Simulated scan of single mutants.
Amino acid sequence: MRLKLLFTAILFVSASISQAQSKDEQQIRNLLQTQVEAWNRGDLEAFMQTYWKSDSLMFIGKNGIKWGWNETLANYKKGYPDTAAMGKLSFNIIQVKRLSVMYCYVVGKWMLTRSIGDISGHYDLLLRKIKGRWVIISDHSS
């Protein structure tokens, strides 16, 4: 009887953890879809709402490290000054890995389809749950 009770408790805890993980993963996938939609509207400010609005936000790209939300937005505006440069964004999410209750790690590929020439690369993101909301705290895109 005790063994059966223990087994039932383990199954319940496993199911609860799995459900929480899939809920978090779905929220993160929705966050990335929000980014795609904002980008494809040409709305960099809306795109940036998925990032941590902090001076501690870290963005690593081909020109090195940029710190802070404002610096990252300015960098995007400089690199993508108009909708022709922005093109149409799509993501191929390769992995969403929950590191803890507060952190998730995402690896994927980004693609821009543009009239001036398509480009693509890979990214890895570290997300943190802050005040019940997942935000990107570190972005390494190449």
Score class of each variant (00 low, 15 high):
residue 6 L to P: 02
residue 76 Y to I: 02
residue 110 W to V: 04
residue 135 V to G: 02
residue 84 A to C: 10
residue 33 Q to D: 15
residue 45 E to T: 09
residue 129 K to C: 04
residue 116 I to L: 06
residue 108 G to A: 08
residue 18 S to P: 02
residue 82 D to I: 09
residue 78 K to P: 09
residue 50 T to E: 11
residue 117 G to R: 05
residue 95 Q to P: 00
residue 46 A to N: 13
residue 57 L to F: 09
residue 77 K to W: 06
residue 110 W to L: 09
residue 111 M to K: 13
residue 14 S to P: 00
residue 126 L to G: 01
residue 13 V to K: 01
residue 103 Y to C: 06
residue 24 D to L: 03
residue 115 S to Y: 03
residue 119 I to T: 12
residue 75 N to M: 08
residue 134 W to F: 08
residue 12 F to E: 01
residue 53 K to L: 06
residue 124 D to G: 02
residue 59 F to K: 01
residue 66 K to S: 13
residue 61 G to M: 01
residue 130 I to R: 07
residue 104 C to R: 06
residue 39 W to A: 01
residue 134 W to D: 04
residue 42 G to F: 10
residue 129 K to I: 05
residue 20 A to H: 00
residue 12 F to L: 13
residue 1 M to C: 12
residue 102 M to T: 15
residue 41 R to G: 06
residue 27 Q to V: 10
residue 99 L to S: 13
residue 97 K to T: 14
residue 56 S to L: 11
residue 54 S to R: 00
residue 65 I to W: 06
residue 127 L to R: 00
residue 73 L to M: 08
residue 23 K to L: 14
residue 99 L to F: 11
residue 84 A to K: 15
residue 46 A to Y: 05
residue 5 L to E: 12
residue 137 I to E: 02
residue 122 H to Q: 13
residue 6 L to Q: 09
residue 21 Q to E: 13
residue 125 L to G: 00
residue 21 Q to K: 04
residue 34 T to Y: 05
residue 134 W to K: 00
residue 9 A to I: 04
residue 127 L to N: 00
residue 92 N to E: 14
residue 115 S to C: 02
residue 131 K to N: 15
residue 40 N to Y: 07
residue 72 T to Q: 03
residue 80 Y to T: 12
residue 140 H to V: 09
residue 82 D to M: 10
residue 7 F to K: 05
residue 48 M to W: 01
residue 54 S to D: 07
residue 81 P to Q: 13
residue 109 K to N: 15
residue 56 S to I: 03
residue 92 N to S: 13
residue 44 L to D: 06
residue 90 S to C: 06
residue 141 S to M: 09
residue 108 G to V: 05
residue 37 E to A: 13
residue 117 G to D: 04
residue 10 I to C: 11
residue 18 S to W: 07
residue 59 F to Q: 03
residue 111 M to S: 12
residue 28 I to T: 05
residue 2 R to A: 14
residue 45 E to M: 07
residue 2 R to T: 14
residue 61 G to I: 08
residue 10 I to S: 02
residue 111 M to N: 15
residue 49 Q to R: 12
residue 70 N to C: 04
residue 68 G to S: 10
residue 43 D to P: 11
residue 113 T to Y: 11
residue 90 S to T: 15
residue 127 L to T: 00
residue 112 L to Y: 07
residue 88 K to M: 10
residue 72 T to R: 01
residue 136 I to G: 01
residue 111 M to V: 10
residue 123 Y to I: 00
residue 41 R to D: 14
residue 129 K to D: 07
residue 18 S to C: 09
residue 66 K to Q: 12
residue 122 H to M: 09
residue 76 Y to K: 05
residue 56 S to H: 14
residue 136 I to E: 03
residue 134 W to I: 01
residue 6 L to I: 14
